[in-house]
Design a protein around this nucleic acid. Sequence first.
DNA 1: TTGATTTATGAATCACTATTCAAATATAGA
DNA 2: TCTATATTTGAATAGTGATTCATAAATCAA
Lengths: 198, 198
Amino acid sequence: MRIKEGNKETDILLAAIKVFAETGYHNSKMSKVAEVAGVSTGSLYVYYKNKEQILLKIFEDVWKKLHDGLLILVERNDLNPIEKFDSMIDMIFDAFTESQAVAIVIANEQHHLQFGNPEGFTEYFEKFLKLGERIVEEGMKTEVFNPNVDVKIFRHFYLGGFRELITNWAVNNEDFKLSKLRQNIKFFAKNGILNIKR
Amino acid sequence: MRIKEGNKETDILLAAIKVFAETGYHNSKMSKVAEVAGVSTGSLYVYYKNKEQILLKIFEDVWKKLHDGLLILVERNDLNPIEKFDSMIDMIFDAFTESQAVAIVIANEQHHLQFGNPEGFTEYFEKFLKLGERIVEEGMKTEVFNPNVDVKIFRHFYLGGFRELITNWAVNNEDFKLSKLRQNIKFFAKNGILNIKR
DNA sequence: TTGATTTATGAATCACTATTCAAATATAGA
DNA sequence: TCTATATTTGAATAGTGATTCATAAATCAA
């Protein structure tokens, strides 16, 4: 019996993230991924069924991690909705600023995956959204959040803004200070949802 | 001498918008575009240099139209910054809700084009952004807009939100009422920028 | 009607690259 | 050491689809 040397599965995934981020999924060659991973092209197909499955794995990992984190947050009862909302933004922010390459891949390919696979490309993404909505709806019940805001519209709008901003940071990170980005995003998001009497 | 019959150039562009919106630029075949346009594949190359040039033309048309409209708006001196800001949102909203297919193409391919062509994929997009910034900065000078907001961050965030929302409307338009979308977008955008004393 | 010129065609070309698979290699246990 | 089994390899395959170009068709002017 022979044992696998090293961890090619991980090597391949990391290489794919790097290559996809640099040249975009569609323009990335499997041979390049293999080269960066330090394995043969044949090995790619030992660990992944095909090119698209590699991309899906990248997404799954990101959204699963976010989902699991958010699940814990939602179920805490020592925090009020505003505190949860604030933590949620931090959580998303941290997940995407942890790796510029991952941020770029997610931002660039989410659309294709999301609308290309009608059944939903990863269950964790859908579940993650639902959890986020729960936090917002909790806040609406106690009227700390504006109950007139449409949750679905809110979610699309602010996630879209988030995405665009993070991509631009990832591509041109000298233009943005991360601390300022975080502060601005929180400011925008809260202004959009807090119930403010004027 | 022979005169061209009909307007194949336009037919091809409209067909490309339709096909690209349905299957995504990368998965769209030139033969399909030709079929929908009712011309031969050879004709595509009489009117456009290659596939990418067709995509670029779609973008150029959209951003040029928006740029020209915004230029007129910016230079009016019978409107204050808040009124201009409001009109600007209407203008963008109308441009993208006019054609679902165009909205989908723009939303899906803007990233690839924007970051694939470092010199800027269309001058009109850049100029359009500059004009928008001018409106915001005017408002900051008179302090009707919050001068602490970073214009660049604001712009990326709200355009990103806009984009995400419009795409989802274009793909699943039964989920969103257009009037409600417009109202919500204005609410979010103004909440993000207005200088409100609390 | 004819010839010149422009426009349109679509089969053939050509480049590209994801994927396969037969062979080679490495390891563990006997 | 030797054999069985698992792993790795990369050249060959195979499918795709953008683009080309020789040919045909249409129009106009003479």
